[in-house]
């Protein structure tokens, strides 16, 4: 079982050119901040490295940070064989939110990424089927953005707004 600090050291040894940082809030769990372009490389090492073996992506959450005008994704992964868990975070500017998909590393990311696209509008490049998942395909806007205002009509039917 490794802590986030140990894992960061291993990642930095394996990927010296990538800027990784361990961050934490005043309470809760720490996370490793990963530049958007490198998330795929980092994930691959996390999954395949003998010392890490993160075989499962537990959760992938899309977030909107209105103060910084950024969107973000939080990845929570764990290893069933080595029993450790880790949180990763990626932030991208809200006007061009593109993050590489990690569907080919952990298959479960497929639907989670579709949900993050549907709810906060992050576009995952190389995703095999990036469509809305909970809302109808022709819904307008991204409901979990903090500045979201629902449309008044959907196909001529009032939404009650």
């Amino acid at each position: 079982m490794k802590t986030a600090e140990d894992i960061l050291v291993i990642l930095q040894n394996r990927l010296p050119d990538i800027e990784l940082a361990l961050e934490s809030g005043e309470s809760g769990q720490p996370w490793i901040k990963v530049p958007a372009d490198n998330i795929k490389d980092v994930s691959k090492i996390l999954r395949d490295d003998e010392e890490l073996r993160f075989d499962t992506l537990m959760c992938l959450s899309g977030l909107h940070y209105p103060a910084e005008e950024e969107l973000g994704v939080a990845y929570h992964i764990h290893s069933t064989s080595l029993k450790h868990t880790l949180a990763l975070k990626v932030r991208v500017p809200a006007e061009d939110p593109v993050i590489p998909s990690i569907e080919m590393i952990w298959k479960t990311a497929d639907w989670h990424e579709r949900e993050a696209y549907d709810m906060v509008g992050i576009r995952f490049s190389d995703h095999p089927d990036l469509r809305r998942i909970l809302c109808p395909d022709d819904w307008e806007g991204f409901p979990l953005r903090k500045d979201y205002t629902p449309q008044e009509f959907y196909h001529g039917v009032s939404t009650g707004e």
């Binding site: 769990q29 537990m58 868990t85």
Partner: peptide
Amino acid sequence: RPKAGDIYVRTESPRGELGYYIVS
């Protein structure tokens, strides 16, 4: 009023891992 921070909590629901990612 939790301090600023976030947490991912998982519990065993009858259907499997029920996770809550809560950001304060």
